[in-house]
Amino acid sequence: MMKTTCTFAKQPEFDPLDCPPDCLRPCERVCPADAIWLERMPTEDRLPDGVTTQGGLQGGVITERCYGCGRCFPVCPYDKIRARTYVRDMAVTSELLRRDNVDAIEIHTSGRRPDLFRNLWSGLRDSLQHVKLVAISLPNAGESTISVMNKLYSFMEDDIRCHNLWQLDGRPMSGDIGRGATKEAISFAVHLAAVEYRPPDETGDKT
């Protein structure tokens, strides 16, 4: 039997000791989840010519907070941030959703493999009653977007007992910071708003 996992792609990682001590830390400022923490170590080195150097940096990415938005990758002036795929076992993810300090989950999907989404949803079903929001992040699939949404919702509708948000920004993950992203997102929203047969939210209203 295939082991079911939750995969979080493009989660950043870097070694703070590789960062120049005088870095302005734009990655820390741009992170919307406050998932990057850096501070200067108190140690200083005195060079033979009497010049005192600053201590290095310590900290890094707080894995529990990072949701992989990708904003930190392009802002690093020294190209020190690497991408890695973070995989967590389904049972561990379900247990996290049962904790008191977790009240939402965001699921990213391309929509091209509904069977994988169904397997994921089935594995999380029993723990979803503990959250207040389930968000589905889906890129623009052109004319098939609505049919994909309805297909995914058919797997979800019997279990949704909380707010259901469709996060549709018109581009795949990390595309929301590129040139023209706002125009594409608005165009995508106008197109979706004009379609009649959209999946409803938990109140029965159209998404």
Rank of each mutant, 00 (worst) to 15 (best):
D89E: 15
G68L: 08
E39Q: 13
E13W: 13
I177H: 06
C23R: 00
T109N: 02
L24G: 03
M90P: 02
D115N: 03
G68N: 05
Y153K: 01
D158I: 03
A181P: 02
S154H: 12
S144H: 06
C19P: 00
T7C: 11
D15S: 12
G180H: 07
V51P: 01
S147H: 14
D176Q: 13
P139D: 07
T4E: 12
T85G: 05
C31T: 08
D15L: 09
G68E: 07
L124Q: 02
L38C: 12
P200A: 15
N164S: 14
V102Y: 04
P172T: 13
Q129P: 00
P32Y: 07
P74Q: 07
T53F: 01
G175H: 03
D169Q: 08
R113L: 14
R161W: 05
D158F: 09
D169S: 06
R99M: 13
G56I: 01
A83G: 06
G178M: 08
M1G: 06
T53V: 15
C72P: 04
E13V: 04
L165V: 13
C23L: 13
C27Y: 04
L192S: 07
E95S: 15
D22G: 01
L168D: 02
E143H: 09
K132D: 15
L138A: 02
P172F: 06
P77N: 05
T63L: 14
D45S: 10
A83C: 02
P139V: 12
T4P: 00
P200S: 10
G170W: 02
E28F: 06
T5V: 15
T63K: 07
N101C: 08
L192T: 04
T145C: 11
T63F: 04
L133V: 09
T5H: 05
C162L: 05
V195Y: 11
L165G: 00
T53W: 01
K10I: 01
L133N: 13
G70A: 07
D169E: 09
V131R: 01
K10W: 13
C162H: 13
T4N: 09
V92A: 14
R82M: 03
A141G: 01
D18F: 03
T7W: 04
R113G: 00
D115T: 06
Q58L: 08
R125P: 00
E196C: 07
G170K: 03
C27F: 06
P20M: 10
T52W: 11
H130A: 11
P20C: 06
Y153V: 03
P26Y: 04
S174H: 12
R112F: 07
R161Y: 02
A185N: 08
G170Q: 00
T207E: 10
R113F: 13
G178N: 08
P32Q: 08
